[in-house]
Design a protein around this nucleic acid. Structure first.
Lengths: 329, 329
DNA sequence: CGCACACCTGAGAGCGCTACCACCACAAAC
DNA sequence: GTTTGTGGTGGTAGCGCTCTCAGGTGTGCG
């Protein structure tokens, strides 16, 4: 297939073997400009024979294109990177980027130092940024040079298009289901309060409760199961007659169920529990978790594709969230 | 901080601003070779003032270094990429690679066409490969040019170092716990049978059962919850007196528990269930899952660091797995 | 026949950077 | 005085590729 020397096959080698100039070989392999059928055949054959693989790095350098897509996750500390949600985002992005010769990097963007975005904007090896857990300060810190190369997974801004699940619709569907099931004293375990996109479901919850003349019972969570459990107990202590708990994430909901069980409360008999995300484990939990879908992989795929394409994107792309009614509520 | 022109700041700009040659600026910023204190100061100041960020792409090109680390997951079809295990691997790798200016790509390596590795070996933009779900054909397909740049997460070979959890020890710990709890008719739901590293726990199971004079009851799973549930029912149909099920993964175990519940069987009263991995949801499942730890992030971090460093690595690095006894067994 | 207008080609100038090499200054050793 | 360093520096040749540009060769048309 290739010469015994370990030197990698370059475009020059292919051109020489095909008896054409490097320029012609580049045109054929790059699929642009003119090239005769003869040249096309010869170059193609030579490339196959030599096992030529274009050097993405050199190509990126001359084209001024980037080779990395950075997933920048905001948060108070680096533990935000431990979230399975981030794992799914990164993984889906890495899958989309692979055929383009682009790799994905994962970074924590401290909430109080969003200036780190400057560096990303000045780094020509970065072809785009996926902002996760966006907040207003982060959006403000996006340098002009990054415009068109950055999208947000969550809340966006006029200059930063956003991709996210329709949080409000999902919350709405779940809460209506709870209400339809006869629940009237519904508490909510929120996500982190500084996270603007998570606040949408809080707003939806508040709106629905007020409209129905029901009490608003908010306890703060952070999307994790452990915190969800503690939050549930806190809610129970403050409002012992609570008959349903809506958790901002399935992980939280699972923690809530475990805590409830610890208190000797039956789900859904005593307290109904519903989550958000429809993670794989929701279907096999005990009881099976009622929740709303959150197409994380699809969102990440769309966001990464948008940056990779570089074409203008509508300011907001909301992915529908639908109810998945199971046993827990 | 920088000129109003959108042209990115290059090393030339810094050198000019500092009144030195590009070579000197490169030495200072690269931290190699000689440079007077004066030159060091001037270049450093100029770089700061101009907001210089080195172009990783150019650096990689001239150094012949790669800019991507490819996570190549073998499997019968592309659904292997949907596994949360892969998500964690990719995410951890992306975190380690980020400071090095390296991005992570995720690819499916068809089990029957491991020749895809050739391409990765010839691609100079690839600085390394993380083989996941390795099998003998995959290891055989690793081209010589990739030696030293590829490591396996799972089983390795003389030329491909491996990083993995100590599957046998984990299985051993869990099974001994089951045995100590009085269980004698222990079935096992395996991982995919073609996956050599997963077979280690099967071997451990078989060895332990035979040594204890207990029946070997194997049903095939694929690490997913859905398949785990079906496998559990299959085991129950074949051996109705089964009093414990050891699942090769926590996801499987969760599926097993759900299926058992569907049959009206109580866990652990009627059938004890244990898993492997200690995923976050294991602690909050109902009942809380007994399992053995699997430090996925640490493994991926070590593997990625190894390829990034390029230093020789011991052929096998086994990460300990310890029992986490909870309620389910 | 000349002219336009295709189609096709190769030379060559970089992309931004590293690293090799030659060179200079100065000091210590012979 | 010459030699041998040793710290410090700049010139410059590339890394492998793309893409502009100048220059072909044909064909159709006035």
């Amino acid at each position: 297939m290739e010469t015994p020397t370990s030197r990698p096959v370059t475009l020059d080698d292919v051109a020489r073997a095909a008896g054409v100039s490097r320029a012609t070989a580049s045109r054929v392999l790059g699929g642009y400009g003119f090239a005769s059928v003869d040249a096309r055949d010869r170059v193609g054959a030579a490339a196959d024979r030599l096992g030529y693989v274009p050097n993405t790095t050199a190509r990126a350098l001359v084209r001024g294109a980037g080779v990395r897509l950075v997933v920048a996750v905001s948060g108070t500390d680096a533990t935000v990177l431990d979230d399975p949600y981030v794992d799914r985002l990164v993984s889906a992005a890495a899958r989309v980027c692979a055929p383009h010769g682009v790799g994905v990097a994962l970074e924590w963007l401290p909430l109080d130092a969003p200036a780190g975005l400057r560096r990303l904007g000045d780094d020509r090896s970065v072809c785009g940024v996926l902002l996760v857990n966006t907040t207003a300060p982060v959006l403000d810190a996006v340098p002009a040079g990054l415009r068109g190369r950055v999208v947000s997974i969550g809340t966006g801004s006029p200059s930063v298009p956003s991709f996210d699940v329709d949080n409000a619709a999902g919350a709405d569907a779940v809460l209506r289901h709870l209400h339809a099931g006869g629940r009237r004293r519904i508490a909510m375990v929120t996500g982190p309060r500084w996270l603007s996109c998570a606040e949408r479901s809080v707003t939806a919850y508040q709106g629905l409760m007020r409209a129905a003349g029901l009490p608003v019972r908010l306890v703060t969570g952070d999307f994790t199961a452990a915190r969800g459990g503690r939050a549930a107990l806190e809610a129970l202590d403050r409002w012992p007659d609570t008959d349903a708990i809506y958790a901002a994430s399935d992980a939280t909901a699972l923690g809530v169920i475990a805590a409830l069980r610890g208190r000797g409360l039956r789900v859904p008999h005593d307290v109904a529990v519903a989550g958000f995300d429809d993670i794989p484990y929701a279907a096999v939990s005990t009881p099976a978790l009622t929740t709303a879908t959150h197409p994380v992989a699809r969102i990440a795929t769309a966001a990464a594709t948008a940056v990779l394409d570089g074409r203008p994107v509508p300011p907001v792309t909301a992915f529908p969230s639908t109810l998945v009614a199971r046993e827990s509520a």
